[in-house]
Design a protein around this nucleic acid. Sequence first.
DNA 1: GCGACAG
DNA 2: ATCTTGTCGC
Length: 223
Amino acid sequence: MRPDLAELKAQQLRLASRVSLEDAVDSLKVRYVGGGDLTFMNIWKTPTQGLGAFVVLDLLTGEVVDRTVVEDVVDFPYIPTFLAYRELPLLVKAYRSLKVKPEVSLIDGQGIAHPRKMGIAAHFGVYLDVPSVGVAKSRLVGEYEEPSPYGTSPLYLNGEHIGWVLRKGRGKSLLFISPGHKVSVKTSLDIVRRILQKKLPLPTRLAHNLLQEERRKRMGKRS
DNA sequence: GCGACAG
DNA sequence: ATCTTGTCGC
């Protein structure tokens, strides 16, 4: 598959103009928070079989109220800044199969912390018109000062404050947080801080665990 | 031209 | 992202 990157770039710019950074969610009142993630049967191969998962957590009771795993062929390579074209279809499929929809979705990857302000979390939010937040384990773009242990520092892109870098614990594990859609820069951080567990927000971590579990089940049945 | 580059 | 558990070091 030879993607037309110039065309996709133009599409990202069009979508970026539709992002809203106004809060449709209140970080203190939000009850249902979702986490979405993907895994691949063989990441070295494209196309390959992929699994997508979504978990919805009820912050009031601490219980998981819904979770789904879906499967499909993924036929788009990983190209930096075009991650959504590889992962969004499965993520959307997983989201749509939920019975209980979250009020806000946390997506593995960047929100507006992207060269064209259209990371996968922003793309997801605009595409479905739902609130979303990007949570990445490493940097794509932006400048920041090293956060002190247990601290947070702003992430800037061309002088604009577009997200946060969070350091959990004394090691050097960082978390890059930015709004996707219908969430402000400030609220994106507040939501994540409310549910941070170890290194990742709990719903994201649960989706990740669910996928690893599901992945090895299916690997055994097919080789 | 060179390096950087989410998952 | 995957291969992979316990183990060494601050």
